[in-house]
């Protein structure tokens, strides 16, 4: 897609993948951070990680199993919280633990069986050896995420503001909530090979946290978060490929630096201090 600007195929695929992953993750990240379920990021990432490990163990394709496991976990969050009478945060913690245990079990068992397996790609991502199809799937999911938020903007923003108010306003909250979880699950599973299970959390939470420092309006957050995420991801990818640094970890550090700067210069921080 960007071949006309970036002639090198490897660099082009890497930049495209980072661009689409950052758009999808950051748009969904605004929902995740504002609804205060940030832990969904690492729970989904580790569910995808466990699915990918299971896929490799069963020789049936890591991506499809990663998608399946993320969706199963996404669909379990609501009913499990309700049936076990636990907060969503506790449920996410329990599911995270189970996912991590399963992932470690399959990796250890494969090593015990003498089947060589390098978990680094799943943990830290690898933008260098991507197939064109992987980039296309990321493009599609980023488009789905943006269109979903645009179509259900009023419902999503009301649910984010206060779920009880959304229910009493006559919004059909449950299908929209589950559709959001479903799209998060797909995004996380498809981004796993690019960003890695351990770093995905940065893409899901940090862009929204950066723009939150400057926005007094949720609409501006939805507009700015993908722009900021895309700028950081693309420049991080281009620079790290140029000087041969690991792309995912370097870009994650870049996100953290921008976040620190955002907190320092945030007008909200000045308001809070002036109130004191």
């Amino acid at each position: 897609m960007l071949e006309c600007i970036i002639p090198n195929n490897i660099v082009c695929h890497a930049v495209e993948a980072m661009l689409f992953a950052s758009i999808a993750c950051s748009v969904l990240g605004v929902i995740i951070t504002q609804i205060k379920i940030s832990s969904i990021g690492f729970t989904m990432a580790h569910a995808a990680f466990a699915g990918a490990a299971l896929g490799l163990f069963l020789n049936i394709g890591s991506t499809s199993m990663a998608i399946l496991c993320s969706i199963v976990v996404a669909m379990l969050i609501g009913p499990l919280s309700q049936k076990a009478k636990m907060s969503v945060d506790t449920t996410l913690g329990v599911l995270f633990g189970i996912s991590m245990a399963l992932a470690i079990f399959f990796i250890a068992y494969m090593q015990y069986l003498g089947r060589g397996f390098n978990a680094n790609v799943l943990l830290f991502g690898d933008v260098i050896s991507l197939y064109r199809e992987e980039v296309y799937s990321l493009a599609i999911i980023s488009l789905v995420a943006v269109v979903f938020v645009a179509l259900f903007y009023k419902e999503i923003t009301t649910i984010i503001f206060d779920r009880k108010i959304a229910v009493s306003s006559g919004i059909n909250v449950t299908p929209i909530y589950y559709a959001t979880l479903f799209i998060i699950a797909l995004t996380v599973a498809l981004s796993l090979n690019i960003i890695g299970g351990l770093l995905l959390y940065v893409w899901l939470v940090t862009p929204a946290a950066i723009v939150y420092q400057f926005c007094y309006n949720v609409r501006d957050m939805f507009m700015l978060a993908p722009v900021v995420a895309a700028l950081i991801s693309v420049s991080g990818a281009l620079y790290s490929l140029e000087v041969s640094l690991p792309v995912g970890p370097f870009t994650a550090v870049l996100f953290s630096i921008v976040f620190a700067l955002a907190v320092i210069i945030s007008p909200k921080r000045k308001i809070s201090r002036s109130k004191i």
């Binding site: 009023k154 009301t158 503001f161 108010i165 959304a166 306003s169 926005c215 309006n217 949720v218």
Partner: peptide, 11 residues
């Protein structure tokens, strides 16, 4: 919280 009073009324 990033919502104006008008946005909340519109909900």
């Amino acid at each position: 919280t990033p919502y104006t009073a008008e946005q909340v009324v519109m909900m």
